[in-house]
């Protein structure tokens, strides 16, 4: 436990010293929710909608940090630590290298939760946002999205042969997902064809799930997204555990 605490403390400091996660996971979502709030205010999501545009976008914005941590941060840090032989160094100590990976997962989960709290607070304080559906459903969905996104990151970081390839793979997954899954650019304003393409992205499904949860929409439409998220998490984590390389 002492090792875990010390590692968590040190890795948090190092991560904050790096600034990237602070910008992409903490600042970006907050800025976005402010822009969306200022531009759309409390306009209805569409004519006759029971919820506002901002309500509709809330869930999507909260996934930006998950996406930044899971798809970008995690693969890069795993492949970097492998490349620098830090994982190997842990193999010749009484502590398993699994611990340092667990610490990374916790750190990215913390970033996501911080971001969620901040985005909600900003939305609530400045734009009168409030969650219409169930917090319980929302948090469960949020956790599921986090698990499945992080599993993609573990997969990419676990099997990429070097940091460069990990970086390229992470970018190829991160940017399309950030832009087209609805996390930044609202899914609802996309043309129908683009929406169809976006539906392939796992995060799109995740955001649909979140939306159903916090808007309190009927839960019968969420079976498909839930299945997608679970299957994705199972497949990605099994492959990464099976093919993980310490060096």
């Amino acid at each position: 436990m002492r090792a875990f605490r010390t590692l968590l403390k040190t890795e948090c400091k190092l991560s904050l010293r790096g600034m990237d996660m602070f910008i992409f996971a903490i600042c970006l979502p907050v800025v976005l929710i402010i822009i969306l709030g200022m531009v759309f205010g409390n306009k209805a999501a569409y004519d006759g909608a029971a919820y506002s545009f901002l309500d509709q976008s809330f869930g999507a914005v909260t996934t930006i940090a998950i996406c930044a941590g899971g798809i970008m941060g995690l693969p890069l840090v795993i492949s970097d630590y492998r490349n620098r032989k830090i994982l190997k160094r842990f193999q010749v100590t009484p502590i398993s290298p699994v611990l340092i990976l667990a610490v990374q997962l916790v750190i990215y989960a913390l970033y996501s939760i911080c971001s969620l709290v901040l985005v909600y607070t900003v939305g609530a304080v400045f734009f009168g946002y409030h969650l219409q559906g169930s917090w319980l459903h929302f948090l469960a969905a949020y956790l599921l999205v986090m698990v499945s996104m992080f599993s993609i990151g573990l997969l990419v970081g676990g099997i990429a042969p070097n940091t460069k390839i990990a970086g390229v793979a992470a970018s190829l997954l991160y940017f399309p997902m950030l832009i087209f899954s609805g996390a930044t650019l609202p899914y609802e304003i996309m043309p129908a064809t683009l929406q169809k393409v976006a539906d392939i992205l796992p995060l799109t499904q995740g955001i649909k799930l979140l939306k159903a949860a916090y808007l309190g929409l009927p839960m019968n439409g969420v079976i498909a997204p839930v299945m997608v998220m679970i299957v994705l998490a199972v497949i990605c984590s099994s492959i990464s555990i099976r093919f993980f390389r310490w060096e």
Partner: peptide, 26 residues
């Protein structure tokens, strides 16, 4: 053990690396 390659985290300080290493042992 000291490996041939320098294996420490980017931007880590001497004290932090020592503290971290010490935390791994009983």
């Amino acid at each position: 053990v000291q490996f041939q390659e320098a294996n420490y985290q980017d931007k880590i300080r001497v004290e932090e690396l020592c503290e971290l290493t010490a935390s791994l042992y009983k």
